Simulated scan of single mutants.
Amino acid sequence: MRKLFVWSILTLMLGVFALVTVPRVWNPSPETQTAHSFADFDSSQIGALWPAPGPDDRKRARMILYKGDVIFADGPTDLIMNTHSMRKSIMSLMYGIAVDKGLIDLNKTLAELGIDETIPLTAQEKTATIRDLLMFRSGVFLPAAGEHDAQITDRPQRDSYKPGAYFFANNFDANALGTIFVQETGYEIGAFMDAFLAKPLGMQDFQAENVIMGDPWFMPSTDTQHPHYHTYMSARDFARIGVMVAQEGVWRGQQVVPESWIALSTAPHSDLRDNHIGYGQYSHAGYLWWIKDADGTVWTDGYGEHFMMVDAARDLVLIERNYTGNSYLSTGLWMFVYGNRSQSLNGMRAAYKWLVQERL
């Protein structure tokens, strides 16, 4: 009996260990992958302005692409990482493709779509359209999966603003857009992304299974009808998205996202200076993209210090990715060690300034 008990405990411990250490996603080797092209460019000055982390710091990947060619790359650019809120800009691009295919009508309301929430939506909230959600102007101020910081502490009172009237970057809008996307297109998010973004862009480290629906922990943190869609991508694959946006939806001669959607989604639909929350360096927001008027750049960013900067006028893309775990254990360790640590954008900004003023 004692031996059986011991073996039962050991088996349980091994099972738990396997569960928490097995990666959530794996690096694939898609048949449609294509390598990046590299320009003959002296990047030593960039490395000095934008130094690599120390040996005891997190895994960090950085790239700069000019006119589609890589002019600087550092760190594990092929390592798949959770994109966190950068997923939202990807969703914006997929909406553009779906609208072009006639699969989605942006003017449909939540009521018409049959969209509700565990905490039932009010009559006013149900008048929000898909377009309102893309602009973070739904007027739905409810708890949502994956939210943090100002999304929780500075959430306005319910029905305090009508849909379309006020900008609030919240996860209800982003997550509900995922629910609506699957409902209206008939595609799972990962499958659509693989077919209409990853394959046309020749991504090297992406497959449909890199999008995981739901909370990453054992117990969901929020009771909701709209799960968080975790999207895992490498820096070198995400950089392709930046180049495609900089080139008006084109990648190596192929129109991947309609040019009109790139223009519409990266236009300044919301003035963030008229908001009760300070959104840092950003002055405006588009359809799930951030805009910085000071230098005319478009950004996407995510928790854990994930950033991509697109300067379409110069066809220039800068990206930084930080590894935040790919299993229950590694994600938990990252949150414990690095979760409250912040690195500045000074290195990226310095490299960008030098390129613009001295080289391009």
Rank of each mutant, 00 (worst) to 15 (best):
S92E: 08
A98E: 01
P53I: 09
A191T: 13
F238Q: 07
L19H: 15
S265G: 06
S270R: 13
W289E: 01
L316V: 05
N346V: 13
K3E: 15
Y166L: 11
K199A: 13
S265P: 09
S265D: 04
I90G: 10
Q225H: 06
L201H: 05
R273H: 12
L10T: 07
L264R: 05
S29Y: 12
F238P: 00
I262F: 02
E147S: 08
Y166I: 01
V6P: 07
T266G: 10
E259R: 10
W26I: 04
K292W: 10
G296Q: 06
W289N: 03
I90T: 07
S260E: 08
Q225C: 01
L288P: 02
T34Y: 11
I319C: 06
P200E: 10
K199Y: 11
A312C: 07
Q357W: 11
Q45K: 14
D132P: 11
T129S: 03
D132R: 09
N27K: 15
E117W: 00
S265F: 11
T331G: 12
G242E: 07
L288M: 10
S342P: 02
F136L: 12
M193G: 06
Q255A: 07
L49P: 12
A145N: 02
Y187P: 03
F41W: 14
R87S: 09
Y161R: 14
G253C: 01
A35D: 01
D56Y: 12
A123Y: 05
E305R: 10
M81L: 06
E248N: 12
M135R: 07
F17I: 13
Q183I: 01
W7C: 06
E125G: 11
L133F: 08
V25E: 00
A235V: 00
L316Q: 02
G190E: 07
I97R: 01
V257G: 02
M1E: 15
N170G: 15
F5P: 00
G47L: 02
I319R: 04
L316C: 05
T222M: 07
R158Q: 03
S92P: 02
A48F: 12
K3Y: 13
D293V: 02
Y287G: 09
R24S: 06
K88V: 14
Y338W: 15
Y187D: 10
L14G: 15
L177H: 01
D274V: 13
R58N: 09
L197I: 00
G242C: 03
